[in-house]
């Protein structure tokens, strides 16, 4: 695979997720303004933080008058699961110069990771892994910046109940289901999925992180038995 083919593959894998991300970005822009954040600051948050659910939470916490330290702590907790993605892609990015690692870490979101994963699981040491992740990250970054800008500038004209946010779980299903080819992987999915539902009440989406950890443990436990 050439660089440009990998870049385009990453972009293409990410595109369906934009169906769900763009309305979310528009709503973020609206919520940020309602929370008393000035328009320019609301737009800049999208490039400085670049983490959808964390930005949403931050705007809501500030709007509710939460202390600044609590807000920073909550952003850290809500993004904790990205450490798992970091560990997961680290071997594939091992030999890259630091500027590539910094760029790809900045772009390492749920969506970009999901878009790159089918290829990375087939070829864990793929020489074009960075172009693939860059293509996916670039597509998401652009969609996110433009949609939050649209939310700030024109407000929400989208009917809230179109259900476009369903595109994200559907894409994750489309990516994960074909990967489940062993009892260990099935166990990881069942335990992580069940725990995510049971722990959904934990603050700042930390349930997602602990549910994923439980899934990892279940997969490794089932996988080590003959």
């Amino acid at each position: 695979m050439t660089r440009s083919a990998a870049f385009l593959l990453g972009m293409r894998a990410l595109l369906p997720m934009l169906l769900g991300v763009v309305p979310f970005g528009v709503i973020y822009g609206v919520v940020a303004l309602q929370s008393g954040i000035p328009p320019l600051a609301a737009v800049l948050m999208s490039s400085l933080v670049f983490a959808g659910s964390a930005q949403f939470l931050l705007a809501q916490l500030l709007g509710a008058g939460a202390p600044v330290l609590l807000a920073v702590g909550a952003v850290g907790l809500i993004n904790l699961r990205h450490a798992l993605y970091s560990a997961s892609v680290a071997p594939a990015l091992h030999a890259l110069p630091r500027r590539w690692k910094v760029l790809l870490a900045y772009l390492l979101t749920d969506e970009a990771y999901a878009a790159a994963i089918p290829h990375l699981m087939q070829q864990p040491r793929s020489p074009q892994a960075h172009w693939l992740l860059f293509g996916a990250g670039f597509a998401l970054w652009t969609g996110w910046q433009l949609s939050t800008l649209a939310g700030v500038l024109v407000g929400t004209q989208l009917p809230a109940d179109l259900g476009l946010d369903f595109a994200l779980p559907l894409t994750f299903i489309a990516i994960v289901v074909p990967l489940i080819d062993s009892r260990a992987r099935l166990a990881a999915a069942l335990v992580a999925g069940t725990m995510a539902v049971l722990l959904a009440g934990l603050p700042w989406k930390t349930g997602l992180f602990f549910a994923a950890l439980a899934g990892l443990a279940a997969g490794a436990f089932v996988g080590r038995r003959p």
């Binding site: 798992l84 560990a87 699981m121 990967l179 549910a211 994923a212």
Partner: peptide, 18 residues
């Protein structure tokens, strides 16, 4: 040994509550 399960566990955890 846990790492290979990150894609499946993390993406399933994101999807199921939805």
């Amino acid at each position: 040994r846990w790492l290979p399960y990150v894609p499946i566990a993390a993406l399933t955890a994101l999807a199921t509550p939805e």
